[in-house]
Structures are given as C-alpha cells and as structure tokens.
Amino acid sequence: MQDYLLLLIGTVFVNNIVMSKILGLCPFMGVSRKLETSLGLGAATAFVLTLASGASHIIDTYLLGPDLSYLRTLSFIVTIAAIVGFTEMFIKKTSPVLFRVLGIYLPLITTNCAVLGIPLLTVQEGHNFVESLLFGLGGALGFTLVLILFAAMRERLEAADVPLPFRGTSIAMITAGLMSLAFMGFSGLIK
C-alpha cells in the first residue's frame, strides 16, 4: 500500500511529467490561458491517460507478450487514438464550448508525448496492472496540477505590465522555466 502511495506521489510531484520530464509541453503552453479550460483539458487528459496506461498494460501483457513487443508503439498509438476519439465525441456532446476551446488540442492529446510516454514508461518499468493505472493517473494528475497552477498564474499575468517583447508566450515560457526550477526542489525526494 505504501508503495502505491509513494508511486502516486512520486509521479505527481517529484517526477512530474511536465516539470521534470518536460513532456506534454504543447498543451501545457497552449491550453493554459484560462483556468476553466485547463481544468477541462486536465480532466480529459487524466481520463485518457488512465485508460491508456491500463489498456496498454493489458495489451502488452496479454496480446503482445515478449514476442510482439516491437508492436508496442504502434498498438499503443492506435489505442490512444481510439480513446481520444471517444473522448472527443463525448466532450462535443456534453460541453460544446469546452470542445471549441480545446480546439486542436483535443485531437492533439493523441500526439501529446506525455500520453504516449507514460504507457511506454509504465511498460518499460514492468509495473503490474494496478501500478500501471496509478502511474497513468499520477502522471495525469501531475499534468493537470501544473496545468491549472500555470493557468491561474497566467490569468494574473495577463493583466501585468510585462515589457512588450516578453508579452504572451515568451513570459509564459519564462514562467514555466521558473516553475521547473521550483520543482527541482523535489529532486532526491523519491528515488
């Protein structure tokens, strides 16, 4: 039980997918302009990621096995694409504005390196099924956490007198860098 907890905390904070692995930067920069939207994308990503790591684990263990491990990337991508497709339709039905706001980023979850990275990592590290789910969930929670923290910061930043050359994405990049710096404080916490 303690191991599971450590794994979850580790993936959320210490080995945060965005801040320490520097994966998933595309939606991190793109969909963090508004708190509400980033909450939506975070939730969608969490949903996709948890399902994807679980599904990948099943596929890898029961379908591919050691013989077909060369099919991992291919089959994972197909699975993720299907899950994203499903999520897309679901969001389009339930929240058209969120759908529109997420825009290109929703289908881009498919190619979000974090979403492919986590299933691959979890398989590589030989996690069991529960661990895979937790790893996916932890990665997604970590992604969502920094995404909404970042969005709240950017909402405030939006009204600041940032010097003209640094306005917009560049100050956001600097902020992301400083966030990453702060997350370095976690280094060494969980080996």
């Binding site: 099919l71 291919l74 299907a82 497709g85 499903f86 339709m89 339930t94 058209p96 504005v97």
Partner: peptide, 30 residues
C-alpha cells in the same frame, strides 16, 4: 501480429462507431 492488429482495429472501430451514434451532436450552439 497481423491478427492482433486487425482484431484490435475491429474492436476499437466498433467502440468508436457506437460512440458516434450515442454522442451525436445535431446543432452547433456556438
């Protein structure tokens, strides 16, 4: 390998097909 991929494709295609019917959106309130 071919079988596995084909099976997977069929299964996922089925799920997506069902979802597209289940979550159809008629009008764009945007």
């Amino acid at each position: 390998a071919i079988l596995v991929m084909a099976l997977g494709g069929l299964l996922l295609g089925g799920v997506l097909g069902w979802a597209s019917v289940r979550y159809r959106v008629e009008d764009d309130p945007l």
